[in-house]
Design a protein around this nucleic acid. Structure first.
Lengths: 337, 337
DNA sequence: TTCATTTTGTTAAACGTTTTTCTGAACAAT
DNA sequence: ATTGTTCAGAAAAACGTTTAACAAAATGAA
């Protein structure tokens, strides 16, 4: 059974004061008059009893609990792992705790989770919603809980921190084109998320700008796992024979690489590869992979920052912030010039 | 500002009953008599108002909140990442939420964190303590909060789920020895943790059993990061010229591998490598690495299971459970027979 | 009929806080 | 002497629950 913690009442008895006065003294900030001696007595008693305020009772009376929640689709994915770490670091530095939950990208689980979170009376929520996360978001908003969207935008006029997927894909593709690659295979995650569509469009924009015809490129989609990217890569390799791949997800990159290896092609001599995001093995591979590093930690920390500002400060208009990525040039793209 | 949720009182008004009766009805389990009609009225009103009980008020009255905390040294480390995932999956399946915190292996941060967690009134704590985590653990125990230790044991008679590091290292080393390796370099994390000492001893036990003399092996320790393992590997390579490495941490393995590569040695032709734990790149490398897979997910899920049992069921004697690992034979160890 | 028991429901106290309101002083100004 | 102001502190209500204790019917047994 849980041991009893010292309460205001205990202090009041020990210091021979009323509960109210003890509360006044301990909360300091107020402008109530308390004599020096009594104040000291209370402070001493509180120390002697090792008093810790009960945050539940405080929250019941309307005080903030300094408890935030962050909801992501998966822990395993290094991208979201970094988001969580970024958010945790910043939140902790401000004295907030973080409740971390994963939805497995299941709208149903997301819905249940979010409602439990609302009932848990967290102070604010950071969420990377599923593709049909509108209901969950509405639910949060309906409960009047401050919210910041991470990575995935949903609805209008809601604070959002993400990245400029269009620009990032555009830049990455341009990099490939500048190395004179023309037959490019785009392998991506089949998903209705706007982030994925933006990557597609960024890719197409670059291709178009370089005057490459549509039958010199091929776009293929698969589920977000290596087992799924493997076969379509094999197909593409056999039928289309690209000189380079643009991979739009770190989670499918290993399937692509394995398929290339199994086809006994060398990277980058026979085929070049650039990855949108950085799998953990990017620098362990031979050759090291050229990637587009994403601002994952920043999405987390900036998200937490924005949320805490909302909680503590003057309310501002909803912001939508798009961070950019940058190409980390390594050795998996061959220059055909 | 947070919107008001429907309360028992609201239901009472709507259903024309007293707050107490509403509570009786909604908590069902009790043996109070309530007429069918009134029960229906209450249930309907609750539904109409979309009533959600306020867990803070419930907890204040002594009810469980179904909120657990898990404290790990780092999120980044795949080993702990998997522990967290395992714990989260099990806890969620039982309707519990998980508060996840990282200590960065700093005893000071751990201490503060744990005290905040106690004050937050979580129902139970899963913790992989730092090497000097005794105080933190005592603090939790002192507050009477159910606790399960993960991976790292501290104190006596406390529930613990970890693995048999001795046996695992023994088995892994034996594997090397059976492939006729004799000059073996052991590269490990310099830490006073019992888990690390056990790995050392398991290694030495196997070496001894095979009658290998102490100057045929070398043990080196470093900080838990690749930058630190890199130079000592280089040294060992130059001075000692081992035929195989036993690496006792996934987090230092990449430094070792890089050093081997930079010395222009091939794995496994020139030197063999076995890793205690599985870095994410183990199967992406050429050759794929032979590893000893650790029961990381299981530690998390079994830990959560044990904790929840303690919370809900009859109290049992403290258990200490040691899970075993298993060798995943891949291609980084050469057979010298 | 009378008393005990069962059924149905209400009152009120409690959990640990915060905060409004109230009660007295002490002191000064009229 | 009366009124007003400033200080110092306490009492009490409130947050949303749970639950022990009570009250009043309805039912049954003697």
């Amino acid at each position: 059974m849980r041991k009893k913690q010292a309460t205001l009442k205990d202090i009041a008895v020990l210091a021979e004061a009323s509960v109210a006065t003890v509360s006044w003294v301990l909360n300091g900030n107020s402008r109530k008059y308390v004599s020096e001696q009594l104040r000291e007595r209370v402070l001493k008693a509180a120390k002697d009893l090792n008093y810790q305020p009960n945050p539940l009772a405080q929250r019941l009376k309307g005080k903030s609990r300094k408890l935030l929640a962050v909801v992501v689709p998966q822990f395993e994915n290094i991208f979201f792992n970094h988001i969580v770490i970024g958010a945790e670091k910043y939140a902790n530095s401000q004295g907030y705790r973080l409740l971390i939950c994963s939805t497995d990208d299941h709208p149903q689980k997301e819905w249940e989770l979010v409602n439990q979170l609302i009932a848990t009376w967290v102070d604010g929520i950071l969420i990377a919603p599923t593709y049909s996360g509108e209901d969950a978001v509405k639910s949060i908003l309906g409960a009047g809980i401050p919210l910041v969207l991470l990575d995935r935008r949903v609805g209008k006029n809601i604070d959002y921190i993400g990245m400029d997927n269009f620009q990032i894909a555009y830049t990455g593709t341009k990099y490939l084109l500048e190395q004179k690659h023309r037959r490019i295979g785009y392998i991506g995650w089949e998903s209705p998320l706007h982030t994925m569509l933006a990557r597609n469009q960024g890719f197409l924009k670059a291709v178009e700008e370089f005057g490459v015809s549509r039958d010199e490129i091929q776009i293929r989609k698969c589920a977000r796992n290596p087992e799924s990217s493997y076969p379509i890569t094999k197909e593409l390799l056999a039928d289309f024979k690209p000189t380079a791949f643009y991979i739009d997800q770190n989670t499918i990159a290993d399937g692509v690489v394995k398929a290339i290896r199994d086809a006994e092609l060398r990277i980058p001599e026979d085929i070049s590869v650039i990855i949108h995001g950085e799998p953990t093995w990017a620098v362990m591979n031979i050759p090291e992979f050229t990637c587009i590093a994403l601002p994952d930690f920043e999405i987390g920390s900036e998200g937490a920052k924005l949320l805490i500002e909302k909680l503590e400060g003057a309310s501002h208009k909803p912001k939508e912030i798009y961070l950019s990525g940058n190409i980390v040039e390594r050795a998996s793209v061959r220059n055909l010039n």
